[in-house]
Structure formats: C-alpha cells, structure tokens
Amino acid sequence: MKLLRDLLDKQVVDREQVKVGKVDGLVAQLRPGKPPRIIAIELGSITLARRLGARPGRWMARLAVKLGGTQHGEPHRIAWRKVKDIGIDIEFDIDVRETSIFAWQDWLRDHIIGRIPGA
C-alpha cells in the first residue's frame, strides 16, 4: 500500500462511523535491522502545525497547553492495531467518545453551543 497516497490525510471514522478527523500524521517505530513498523496515526492541530514547520508546531503545542492543560500538549494518537478497514475512509475499532480527541468540541458544546437556546 502507498502510505502517502492511500493513508495520509484520509478521513478517519470510528466504529459508529462518526467522523473523528483526518489522518494528519503517521508514526513509525525504527527498529535495528528490521523495517520501520507503523505503530499509530496522529490527529489534531499540533500534528498539522508541525507539518507546516517546526516553529508553527511549537506554537500550536504551546497554545494547546495554554487552552487545554498539559495533557493536550501532545498530538492525539490512535494505535495502528485498532485499524479495522482501509478504504476511501479509514475505520478504527474505537469509540471516539472514550478518547480525548473531541475534548475541545465537548468543551465548546458544554460552555457555548449548548447554552444557546435551540441547540
């Protein structure tokens, strides 16, 4: 399979077909004498900012810590062994509600959107 063409930037859905994000990054483990092994995908603004350069990456990480606390200073990762199906979308055997990927959306809902009548 071609990683950049068929995996990177593709839509990620969870087992309920909820759209989780795009495959913003691919993490490989380097092993002596053995080919690099894909261990996880990354998603989120920090990974995206890093793709633009080291400096935007640092800024975004600092911003994320400022807004969300230290637990948000690193990109979100989903382990590769959770992958279920690779098509035009990439399905993972997870439930996004059990991860912190949507923490900011939850915050938005609880503090702003949910407080507007009719939401």
């Binding site: 839509q11 990620v12 909820v18 759209k19 989780v20 994000g21 795009k22 998603l43 900011w104 959306q105 939850d106 938005l108 809902r109 702003i112 959107i113 949910g114 507007i116 009719g118 939401a119």
Partner: peptide
C-alpha cells in the same frame, strides 16, 4: 477539511465545531 462531523440536519449540539 479537518474531518469533523458535519450536517445541517443534525442538532447544533451534536456538531459543536461545525455550528460554531
């Protein structure tokens, strides 16, 4: 572009990023 959930028929609270 960022792969969030979206849909005008859904309730705003279900897609906070989209409605925001």
């Amino acid at each position: 572009g960022f792969g969030w959930n979206w849909g005008e028929d859904r309730k705003p609270r279900d897609d906070p990023g989209f409605s925001a």
